[in-house]
Every structure is written in structure tokens, then in C-alpha cells.
């Protein structure tokens, strides 16, 4: 009876594995197709029936991204925006610490105000934010692209959750030793908060790399375009040059997949933190 049950279990596990393997293959198929097509020449892509693998591997498409596609400039802007978003990460951590470990007037009200911004859709704020930045003469500048998305309520919330669990006695002891509040934040709080910093750091990188809406609205000039806005422009200009488009897409997607694979442990843990609050 017991062995029967066990072999039944093993069988159903095998069936489930098979279903998942097929479904998983379908899930990564677009990425495989993208990556392999990026090495095909345009002549090969235009054929009615094409193989999955390129017949003649070529790096032409990647070269064209930089020669005729301006991707060097987009890459530089994207890296600047990504780096700047780490300043936002610091602001989020500071705010999370402030809300977790200090008592001050209006704290409850301000924290609810912060949380309420999570409910506001981007499409409602995009026009007024454009008007504000226009008034500040920051439209069509990198600073204008960076500022609107720099801090986020959800990150502040997660930092506060984590930092609330840090014991008060550590902070009190440091204060008695004469440490300043900023010294405590930099040398005690941040090192303890490494797990949440790791998760948020990776998400910040991915968010900066993928930034689309604000660069699209704020940048009028190609010299301030990011990779995603540039890729969208490329698609509009070279509608049928799929090899070039796939090279552009691979250039955006592959680095993120590599970073994800390296740091997956932290990212997947991050959702445990969120699910348990």
C-alpha cells in the first residue's frame, strides 16, 4: 500500500515535471528566438522559411546598433540614470530609518502620505510632473529624467519594516559612546541592513536600466534618450530590419538576465520578505 502510494507520487511528480518543462520551454522561447535572430543577416531573416539557428553567424547587427543606431549614447545615458538611482536608494534607506527609529511630530501622518503615493497611477501624474519640470526648466535634461522616479514609497516601506526589527539597544549604546546620528546610520544601521540593501540594490539597478516612461516624456532630444526609448525609436525607423531590432533587444535583455542569475538568491528571498511583511 505504502509503496504503491509512493510510486504513484513519483509518477505524478514525473508528469508534473514534464508539463512544467514544456511550459518552461515555451516561456523562454521568445528569448532564444531573439538571441539567435540577432546573429542572422537581414537576407536570412527575410526568407519565408527560416531555421531556428542562424545559417551564417554575423555580428553585423550589433555593430550597426552603435554605428548607425546611436546606442553608445543611449548606453551612456542609461548608465548615468542607473547610477543616479542609487542616490534614490540611499534616500529611501534614510527615510526608512527615520520612520523606523525616531519619534517626531507628524510622523504617522507623513508615513500615511508616503504610502498613499503607491496608489497613484503614473498616467495621472505624468502631465503635471511634465508641467512642473517645464516650469523648473528641467525638461530635456538628464536631471529631469532622473528626479521623478528617484524615490519610491514601496522601497521606503520595506526599509522601514526591516529596520524596525533592529534592536534599539545597539543604537542607544552607540549614542552613549558619543556617536553622531549619521555615524550610527552609516556604520551600524546600513551594515546590518545588508539583506534588504542587496534586494533593493538589484531592483534599483533593474529599474534604472529598464526606465522608459519618464525618459520618453522628458527627453525631446535623442542625445538624452535611454536604451528603451532608443530601441523604441529604432523599431519605428527600421520597421522590417528584425535582425537589428533583435540585437537591440538582446543588448537590453541579456545583461539583466546575467545579473539576475548571479543575484537570484537575494531576489527570490526578497519576495519572502515581502510576503511575510
Amino acid at each position: 500500500m505504502d509503496t504503491n502510494f509512493r510510486s504513484e507520487r513519483k509518477l505524478s511528480k514525473g508528469v508534473v515535471g514534464l508539463i512544467l518543462a514544456f511550459w518552461g520551454l515555451m516561456t523562454i522561447l521568445p528569448f532564444l528566438w531573439m538571441f539567435l535572430s540577432s546573429f542572422k543577416s537581414n537576407a536570412e531573416i527575410s526568407q519565408m522559411t527560416q531555421n531556428f539557428l542562424p545559417q551564417h553567424w554575423t555580428l553585423m547587427n550589433y555593430k550597426n546598433l552603435f554605428v548607425s543606431g546611436n546606442f553608445g549614447v543611449y548606453l551612456k545615458n542609461t548608465l548615468i540614470i542607473t547610477l543616479a538611482s542609487f542616490v534614490g536608494l540611499l534616500f529611501n534607506a534614510m527615510a526608512g530609518y527615520g520612520f523606523a527609529k525616531f519619534k517626531f511630530k507628524g510622523k504617522a501622518f507623513l508615513f500615511i502620505a508616503v504610502l498613499s503615493t503607491m496608489m497613484i497611477p503614473g498616467q495621472v501624474t505624468m502631465i503635471p510632473v511634465y508641467l512642473i519640470l517645464n516650469q523648473l526648466h528641467l525638461t530635456n535634461t538628464l536631471l529631469g529624467i532622473i528626479l521623478p522616479g528617484l524615490v519610491g514609497a514601496f522601497a521606503i516601506f520595506l526599509f522601514r519594516q526591516f529596520m524596525s526589527n533592529i534592536s534599539d539597544s545597539i543604537i542607544e549604546a552607540a549614542r552613549l559612546d558619543g556617536a553622531s546620528e549619521w555615524y550610527i546610520f552609516w556604520h551600524i544601521i546600513l551594515p546590518i541592513s545588508k539583506p534588504v540593501l542587496a534586494v533593493q540594490g538589484i531592483l534599483t539597478f533593474i529599474g534604472g536600466w529598464n526606465a522608459f516612461l519618464w525618459p520618453l516624456i522628458i527627453a525631446n532630444d535623442q542625445k538624452y534618450y535611454t536604451l528603451s526609448v532608443g530601441l523604441q525609436l529604432l523599431q519605428g525607423q527600421h520597421t522590417t530590419d528584425y535582425g537589428l531590432q533583435m540585437a537591440g533587444s538582446s543588448f537590453m535583455v541579456i545583461p539583466i538576465i546575467i545579473i539576475f542569475l548571479i543575484f537570484q538568491k537575494y531576489i527570490l528571498q526578497g519576495f519572502n520578505v515581502q510576503a511575510e511583511k
Binding site: 529598464n210 528603451s228 523599431q235 535583455v253 539583466i256 539576475f260
Partner: peptide, 15 residues
């Protein structure tokens, strides 16, 4: 299964 979630929407829309 998680990979599509982290990749850029513009890039996957182009693909």
C-alpha cells in the same frame, strides 16, 4: 518562469 518579469517591456514588445 521569473525571467520575463525582470526584462524590459519595450525589448520584449519588440521581440
Amino acid at each position: 518562469f521569473y525571467t520575463p518579469s525582470i526584462t524590459n517591456t519595450v525589448a520584449v514588445a519588440v521581440v
